[in-house]
Amino acid sequence: MTEERDGLHVTVQPDVCIGAGQCVLAAPEVFDQDDDGVVQLVDEAPEHELHRDVRLAAARCPVEAIGVVEP
């Protein structure tokens, strides 16, 4: 999944996710986990004020299942 807003691209790789939950702790408005603990992208186009939280979530992911690409 990929979405763009204000130049920020957020991607998730559910098949790589190990369910650590660090993304949800860092940015609960953007990420969630399914019943198996696998990452789900809740808001594909987070508002600018959430960009810092999204970057933090990506940095905390132990298996790099979250990607953030900025121009």
Rank of each mutant, 00 (worst) to 15 (best):
R55Q: 15
Q40I: 05
D32C: 02
G21Y: 04
P14L: 00
V68H: 11
E3L: 09
E4P: 01
V38D: 00
D32V: 03
L50I: 03
P46Y: 11
Q33P: 05
E49M: 05
V63N: 02
V16L: 04
A26E: 14
L56H: 14
V42E: 08
A45R: 10
C23K: 03
L41Q: 06
L50E: 14
R55D: 15
V24D: 03
V39W: 00
V63Q: 01
G19C: 10
E49S: 11
M1W: 00
Q22C: 08
I66S: 06
Q33T: 12
A20V: 08
V16N: 02
Q33V: 11
R55C: 13
E47S: 11
A57D: 13
D32W: 05
D53Q: 15
G21C: 02
A59D: 15
E29I: 04
Q22A: 12
R55I: 08
P71W: 07
A57E: 14
G37D: 07
Q13M: 00
F31N: 11
V24R: 04
C61Q: 09
V16D: 03
E4V: 15
G19L: 04
E44G: 15
T2K: 04
A65D: 01
G67Q: 09
A59G: 11
A27R: 06
Q33M: 09
D35P: 02
V10Y: 08
V12S: 00
A58V: 13
D6Y: 10
D43G: 06
Q13P: 00
D43K: 03
G67T: 06
G67C: 03
V68A: 13
G19Q: 06
E3M: 07
L56C: 12
E3G: 15
A59C: 08
E64A: 15
V39E: 00
A58P: 11
H48C: 06
L50Q: 14
V69T: 14
E70Y: 14
H9S: 12
L8A: 07
D32G: 15
A45H: 12
Q40F: 06
E29C: 02
V63W: 05
V38G: 02
V39S: 00
V54S: 14
C61R: 05
V69C: 01
A57Y: 10
C17W: 05
V10I: 14
M1N: 00
E44C: 05
L41C: 02
L25W: 04
V38Q: 01
T2I: 11
